[in-house]
């Protein structure tokens, strides 16, 4: 029986820098036809995200009572996409007064960066990196009428076979996370490949290995290591929108923001992010996850040991990547 590769993303360390986005883009999606494609993106939450309002579509997609749902397709403008600037006209030809995008974007993958919810100073927001969840029950795979999508036996990576894909786009409709994209030049659906050529050689995916925030753990669910500890032992890493039913293999350590203020402006015990919102994102398990993290943080504040905190601190950068034969890329 093969293993399932997984990633744990610690939201208490994510600074929304988009290094993962840039790393992924340079490596895999820098060709014509892929301008609006970010296999990996980072969005501000709460917020409409990328593509715009994907969670609304997500509720109409994925699995409901064992039945696959098709949520429809987003219009192109929900993706934004990389647009070139008029450098030639503005700088070298003297024909434009202003340097600007040749075609102005009305929305983009990070349009609502730092757009906070709630009222100042008790507002709240945080950053959520997203990639294909390489689900245990992938909706995209199920949806594909030509069986172009498959889940690899050896590592559980879900791939769109580019030789077989016919650009039918039902996978795009079915994926509740909107993590399958469409290449309009090649007429193919394309998505995150969990950097399998790297993983096969023991090198972590680019979004994880190139993350300066050291917040992405990579490994196999079946192996002893940080992933298993965080997901199964400490139970602090949770899937995003578990109700979508696809059983994601990307997990998140939920965010703990600084305390809010009471009406007079004193530090208050009221959590800054409403618990209902975190439950909406990560399901009911999030309550216990946050309690565990806060209890362990408190142990450290009291000078005591904490295995969980040491795991999350990850003093040794390479300890994040528990895949065989790690070598320097």
């Amino acid at each position: 029986m093969g293993k399932q590769v997984a990633m744990v993303i610690d939201l208490n360390k994510c600074i929304g820098c988009q290094a993962c986005t840039a790393a992924c883009k340079s490596l895999w999606t820098d060709e014509e036809g892929q301008e609006s494609m970010l296999w990996n993106n980072v969005e501000t939450k709460p917020g409409p995200g990328y593509p715009k309002n994907w969670e609304e579509k997500g509720e109409r997609s994925g699995w409901k009572d064992g039945v696959l749902q098709y949520g429809g397709l987003h219009p192109d403008e929900d993706f934004g996409g990389e647009k070139l600037l008029n450098h030639g006209a503005a700088y070298f030809e003297g024909t434009a007064d202003r340097l600007q995008q040749e075609e102005p974007m009305g929305y983009g993958a990070n349009w609502d960066e730092d757009t906070s919810s709630g009222d100042y100073p008790n507002n709240y927001h945080f950053y959520l990196p997203r990639l294909c969840n390489h689900c245990t029950k992938p909706a995209c795979l199920e949806a594909c009428p030509v069986r172009a999508i498959y889940k690899r036996e050896q590592d559980g990576i879900v791939l769109v076979d580019q030789d077989k894909c016919q650009g039918i786009r039902l996978c795009n409709q079915a994926c509740p996370y909107d993590k399958v994209y469409f290449n309009y030049i090649q007429n193919k659906s394309q998505k995150c490949i969990f950097c399998f050529p790297r993983v096969e050689q023991g090198v972590a995916p680019a979004c994880a290995r190139q993350c300066p925030g050291r917040l992405r753990f990579v490994g196999y669910l079946e192996d002893a290591g940080p992933i298993a500890k965080l997901v199964y032992e400490w139970k602090v890493a949770l899937p995003l929108h578990p109700e979508f039913g696809t059983e994601p293999n990307v997990f998140y350590v939920p965010p703990i923001l600084p305390p809010s203020f009471d009406e007079e402006g004193r530090f208050s015990d009221e959590p800054r992010v409403p618990m209902d919102y975190l439950r909406y994102l990560f399901g009911p398990e999030v309550d216990q996850s946050l309690i565990t993290i806060m209890e362990e943080m408190e142990r450290k504040q009291q000078g005591k040991e904490s295995e969980l905190m040491d795991l999350l601190i990850a003093r040794d950068w390479k300890s994040l990547f528990n895949i065989p034969d790690v070598r320097v890329a």
């Binding site: 988009q18 190139q210 300066p212 003093r315 040794d316 950068w317 320097v328």
Partner: peptide, 25 residues
């Protein structure tokens, strides 16, 4: 891609790896 494999300053601190940012990448 980040070379990444730095050492530490003192035994108890996290190491410096991997360093980088979206502009650099």
């Amino acid at each position: 891609e980040q070379q990444g494999e730095y050492g530490r300053s003192g035994d108890d601190t996290p190491d410096y790896g991997p360093r980088g940012c979206q502009k650099g990448l």
